[in-house]
Design a protein around this nucleic acid. Structure first.
Lengths: 206, 206
DNA sequence: TTTGACATATGACACCGTGTCACATAAAGT
DNA sequence: ACTTTATGTGACACGGTGTCATATGTCAAA
């Protein structure tokens, strides 16, 4: 987490810093990013950066976390809009993130984050779906989801549904961007795989 | 790819280097790894390293690729052993990788690779190297898989089955290691999610 | 207004890691 | 033997990170 000094900053200065960091993390991965570039863009001296953040990672995961927070709000809103249809909400989410990523060309934060996605980043993204924080925001999802559509017995089953959905959705997001699929191709593949998951991979006879 | 010089090396010296690199990449992630440590372990001067590899990444992905090659052989063998039962072969693979990872404690290559898994690494894992071999290997799988168990129409459907299977399997592998689940917990979660995927997440009526 | 305690700003610097390059040595070809 | 080609070597330039001594600002109590 950023240090208290960061949050004590005047909003404008904080924004300048956030935007500068976002710019650098839009250019390259966390590991290729250079603090010097952030400093140059934000116009602050080197020492100041370390007043606000522990290090580069700290700044990066702060940005990802903030992004994830907003996405979660969107997701909850989508669930409400679609009468608890989890698949449709996820599908719209997929579509939205992908469109946004394509519209903004090579240099945009979310594209870069997705391309360099690893476990820690994915966890920061889906912190609501992990076992530890399950009760905090999982409850919110659970109440909203229309359970009628699922072949599930209990609350724990929904956890696994979310796990599967997020695994496949993220995999498709990353792949679509990395392989530079067109929006149509990406959605086609995603819908196909989603329908297979819904229906089941095996013959019902087995 | 490593430079020709690397492959011209006498087998013993090449092995020393490979083991040294593996040791370093077992300790920390690709980005935290230091070439200096590899040099020290292998007992070669700095310049030599750059005779053999383009850079750190080059060495790392060579090791991952070699590992993946062996895993693929195992997988094909498993498919044969289990009469083309793709799910069972995948399950055994999951079990094997996880067991191996646990048995060897904190410092082992595959654990570290899984923990720092990203798209490029996963791609190296699932599609081994050249374009030509991809089609060839896919064909190999296609011929071996017992299509009777699946609700699939054509060859393209199997592609999507493999996509889903690998997404969920990798996700579980990484999560099990990162969250330090016991082998029992990990297998329980995996089996549960696999059975949900096989049967389908939605009620058959929908 | 002065004072002192605490928070914040600053940039020079020590440290570490990468990749290169000029030169040394070995191996192979003729 | 001599030339050519391949490989070995380590000093070094360059760039990046995190720290620290010092400067500057803030604010409340005296």
């Amino acid at each position: 987490m950023p240090k208290p000094t960061f949050f004590n900053l005047k909003e404008e200065k904080r924004n300048v810093l956030v935007e500068a960091a976002k710019k650098e993390f839009s250019r390259v991965s966390l590991y290729d990013a250079s603090i010097a570039n952030i400093l140059k863009t934000a116009g602050i001296p080197r020492g100041s950066f370390y007043q606000y953040f522990e290090n580069k990672e700290d700044a990066f995961f702060y940005l990802v976390g903030e992004h994830a927070r907003k996405r979660f709000e969107t997701f909850i809103a989508l669930l409400e809009t679609h009468d608890g249809d989890l698949f449709e909400a996820t599908r719209v989410m997929f579509h939205t993130m992908l469109s946004f990523s394509y519209e903004n060309g090579q240099n945009n934060f979310i594209r870069n984050v997705l391309l360099n996605m690893n476990y820690k980043i994915e966890k920061t993204f889906t912190q609501t779906l992990t076992r530890e924080t399950i009760d905090q925001r999982y409850e919110e999802i659970f109440l909203l989801v229309n359970k009628d559509q699922f072949a599930i017995d209990n609350k724990s089953d929904l956890y696994h549904v979310l796990q599967i959905l997020s695994a496949v959705t993220f995999h498709n997001l990353v792949q679509s961007i990395a392989e530079e699929l067109t929006l149509g191709e990406a959605l086609g593949k995603y819908d196909k795989e989603m329908s297979m998951i819904k229906r089941g991979l095996c013959k019902s006879s087995s």
